[in-house]
Amino acid sequence: MRKLAPVALIAILSACARPADGPSASNIYNTTLPHSNQKVPVLRLADAPAAPANISALSYAPADRGLAVLRSGGYSDARLRRGDVIDVTIFDSGEEGLFSSTQSKTLNLGRFTVDSSGYVTMPFVGRQRVLDSSPEALQSQIVSGLRGSAVNPQAVVTVVDKPTSGVTVNGGINKPGGYPLTARKERVLDAIALAGGTSSDPGSSSVTLIRGRQRASAPLERVMSDNSQNVYLLPGDQVMIDKDAPSFTAFGAFKSVGEFEFQPGKLTLSQALGRAGGLLDDRADASNFYLFRNQPVYSPATMVNGKPVAPARIGAKPAIYKINLRDASNFVLMQQFQMQDGDILYASNAGLVDAAKLLTVYQKSVPTAAAPQPGATN
């Protein structure tokens, strides 16, 4: 009887509380939501609902207009502003003109910056007011200023830099910084290309466009596939690229626990198990491996012009999937089961492992009191 007493004590204490790093199978099967006491279903992997057929589900609601709320006609103002840099070249085809003593009939006057008063000072022409003028109008001004010294003068004015008409591209980009807008009417994807492209996969990136007090966001893949999202940019716009990679978390008796990022739509449950290093042979219960998920609820698929429109994710319901790795058929199902953002993998301990932990706890000796310091009084 004395030999059985420690075993009985362990059994009684383990019924109350036992050392473990996660819930037991009975805890999982009795899980309820905190506020509604609604029971969370525990399903077999074979009973997982299928994703919408033949069409990819959207990660945004149909009512979400994304970047389209900031649509504009684009930047096309060619007028010169303070701080603009211009390059001026003049020509004279006359025999008795400005360049009659030279071999070349062309002279590059150089580059000039529009000062704070809206003027530039050029050789042969002098100080000219150019603020709000177009390059073509300035060419006429230069020709008029050269008529006394040139027989048949012509001028070409090229805008080299317009710092006041630029946009800023920051975040997960290879070459963040400011970039000028031109008469080409650059769009969001043009700015991203000028900045060297994103530093992460487009499927894991989102775009935020800030214009004054307005702000709008959209997944980069949506901007790339939907022309209405690739809006024209205006001076002062800020384009922010954010990394928005989905991830899953692994807890319990895995060889490697933690958070793991993945590319959306390209990671199966079997691959996720491999990312976590597989189960620990000396701890895990292979018949009780679980996946916790907020199961997406999609809107009904609709048809537009005879083509299916991808349904949107409109809600989520919690669900728990049990995977019995001792059943070989589950390995086939795991190859088809796609991981989703926020999924949690949990590998529970085998019953004997938790019992051994408890036995170890009660076998530890009681710590003795420290020896008194020299000279200390009772």
Rank of each mutant, 00 (worst) to 15 (best):
R79V: 00
R79T: 12
R79N: 06
R79K: 14
L80W: 10
L80G: 01
L80S: 00
L80T: 03
R81Y: 11
R81H: 15
R81K: 15
R81P: 06
R82H: 11
G83Q: 06
G83N: 03
G83C: 01
D84W: 06
D84A: 05
D84R: 01
D84T: 02
V85Y: 03
V85R: 08
V85N: 07
V85A: 12
V85K: 07
V85W: 00
I86C: 04
I86N: 13
D87E: 15
D87K: 15
V88Q: 03
V88D: 05
V88N: 06
T89C: 01
T89S: 04
T89Y: 04
I90E: 00
I90M: 05
I90R: 00
I90Y: 03
F91M: 05
F91Y: 14
F91H: 10
F91R: 06
S93P: 05
G94F: 08
G94V: 06
G94S: 09
G94N: 12
E95R: 15
E95L: 09
E95M: 09
E96S: 14
G97Q: 08
G97L: 03
G97C: 00
L98P: 03
F99P: 01
F99L: 04
F99C: 02
S100E: 12
S100D: 11
S100Q: 14
S100W: 03
S101N: 12
S101C: 10
T102N: 05
T102M: 10
T102L: 12
Q103E: 10
S104H: 03
S104W: 08
S104V: 13
S104E: 09
S104K: 01
K105R: 08
K105T: 04
T106H: 12
T106W: 11
L107V: 07
L107T: 09
L107E: 11
L107C: 05
G110C: 11
R111F: 00
R111V: 00
T113C: 09
T113I: 14
T113D: 02
V114Y: 07
V114E: 05
V114C: 04
D115E: 08
D115V: 06
S116C: 11
S116G: 13
S117E: 14
S117L: 11
S117A: 14
S117P: 09
G118W: 07
G118A: 05
G118Y: 07
G118C: 04
Y119T: 13
V120F: 10
V120N: 02
V120D: 02
V120P: 01
